[in-house]
């Protein structure tokens, strides 16, 4: 299967402001795995993060405590099968590959917080939403899972949504970024 191209719901490449204040990229091809566990299972201990928090595993996989008794694992493209294999399965644990089910974008730069605040009602201040925070929220009226995952002190949000909303959401976030210097190509439209 790896020889097949992964077709993203978003046709556009990365958009960024000339001053570097903000950038928006499509990461829909990243491997994503959802883990759900019954309360009495060892999955939580194994994954070591609780709801609301994330950590990066030594192999680079980002492990997000995305809901109570629920984790999302994010890794480079094509890692889905390995991720699945790396998980414990004792007790009532469900592991679902959601790589194809979720579109994912990276919004980064110092202006990203102000751009996101235009379309998301969550308090993004550093104490309420510090680096590593995991939360779900409505972004431009689309339900999204978000992770603040700064890269070398550059403020960065990973935003993922149900795949079929991907094109709309990318356009809506790009629209919010226009104020901060991103030129939105004409073929990116919310309709």
């Amino acid at each position: 299967m790896s020889e097949l191209d992964f077709v993203s719901p978003v046709a556009s490449g990365a958009l960024s402001a000339s001053g570097g204040g903000i950038a928006l990229e499509d990461l829909s091809d990243r491997s994503k795995v959802l883990v759900r566990a019954g309360r009495s299972t060892a999955a939580g201990t194994h994954l070591k993060v609780t709801y609301g928090h994330s950590r990066r595993r030594r192999d680079g996989t980002l492990i997000c405590g995305s809901r109570p008794d629920e984790w999302t694992l994010i890794a480079d493209p094509g890692q889905g099968a390995e991720l699945l294999a790396s998980l414990p399965d004792e007790g009532f644990v469900s592991v679902v590959d959601i790589t194809h089910g979720r579109a994912m974008f990276r919004l980064s730069g110092p202006d990203s917080v102000d751009a996101l605040a235009k379309v998301c009602n969550i308090d993004l201040a550093d104490d309420m939403t510090p680096d590593g925070a995991v939360f779900s929220a409505s972004v431009a009226k689309v339900t999204c899972d978000l992770v603040r995952s700064d890269v070398a002190d550059r403020r960065t949000y990973l935003i993922s949504c149900e795949r079929s909303f991907g094109r709309f959401l990318f356009a809506a976030i790009a629209d919010a970024c226009a104020e901060f210097g991103i030129d939105v190509p004409e073929d990116i439209s919310m309709h």
Partner: peptide, 10 residues
Amino acid sequence: RIFEPVRRSA
């Protein structure tokens, strides 16, 4: 900005 999300299949 009027957000009326639309869904599109692949």
